[in-house]
């Protein structure tokens, strides 16, 4: 088995998960507690990658980060490198692609925190930021773990967006799913099979963690009375 794409993919998924916690938590907080009447528009934008074909998403991201456009040009000026077909470009694309998988579990767990507990903390003099870290986060742990794990798993298995934005450069943008596709194209079935099986097992383990963490909430077994 070729370990290079596996290590690359694991690195990509880890970086993306960390970024998604940093940007996903504030977005989810805003979605849960904002009273802005047009909020649903932002919710729709966040959920868009769930329904958009990866090639469409990948196409727009590729155009956006190309050096001919603002974001791409800015990046070149700041870091002296272009984004398309690079690891950084892949990270940006994957963050967008996996955004709903982080934000939605975060937001729904924030929403289930009893408002009265939040208000009680306020009347006890706790600032909104302190209330968030001492009350909301501890009571949303399972949702936060779910969001992290799902976005990690989703990034592991992405194909279309990676192909559009990253291409197929070994050691730079060649992820597991592209490696499998490549092997099949080259009729190297046994190599494809071992990598595919590895990905299957990893995905299964990750989802098992999610369901184990959330057993109380989303019991998959019939209730026993």
């Amino acid at each position: 088995m070729n370990w290079e794409p596996i290590i690359l993919t694991a690195k990509l998924a880890s970086v993306v998960s960390v970024i998604l916690v940093i940007i996903g938590v504030p977005i989810a907080y805003w979605i849960s507690f904002s009273k802005w009447r047009w909020k649903f528009l932002i919710e729709a934008v966040v959920a868009l990658p769930l329904v958009l074909p990866p090639t469409v998403l990948g196409f727009y991201i590729l155009v956006a980060i190309s050096p001919n456009n603002l974001i791409g040009r800015l990046w070149v000026e700041l870091f002296g490198a272009t984004l398309p077909f690079s690891f950084s470009g892949l990270v940006i694309a994957s963050v967008f692609y996996s955004l709903p998988f982080a934000v939605q579990p975060f937001a729904s767990s924030f929403e289930t925190v009893d408002r009265r507990l939040i208000e009680a903390a306020w009347t006890l003099g706790s600032s909104k930021v302190k209330t968030f870290f001492t009350i909301i986060i501890p009571l949303s742990v399972s949702g936060i773990i779910t969001g992290i794990v799902l976005s990690f798993a989703h990034t592991l298995g992405e194909f279309g967006v990676v192909l559009m934005v990253g291409g197929n450069i070994p050691g730079v943008t060649r992820t597991v799913s592209i490696d499998i596709y490549d092997n099949v194209q080259a009729l190297k079935y046994s190599e494809a099979a071992s990598t595919a099986f590895f990905l299957l097992i990893v995905s299964f383990l990750i989802l098992s963690i999610v369901y184990a963490v959330n057993r109380k909430v989303w019991s998959v077994w019939p209730q026993r009375f």
């Binding site: 009893d114 507990l117 009680a120 009347t123 003099g125 600032s127």
Partner: peptide
């Protein structure tokens, strides 16, 4: 609310679980 410094007892007590 944080700066009014008053005590509020909620109906269901709202203890942090």
């Amino acid at each position: 609310a944080q700066n009014r410094r008053l005590g509020y007892l909620f109906q269901e007590h709202a203890l942090f679980p």
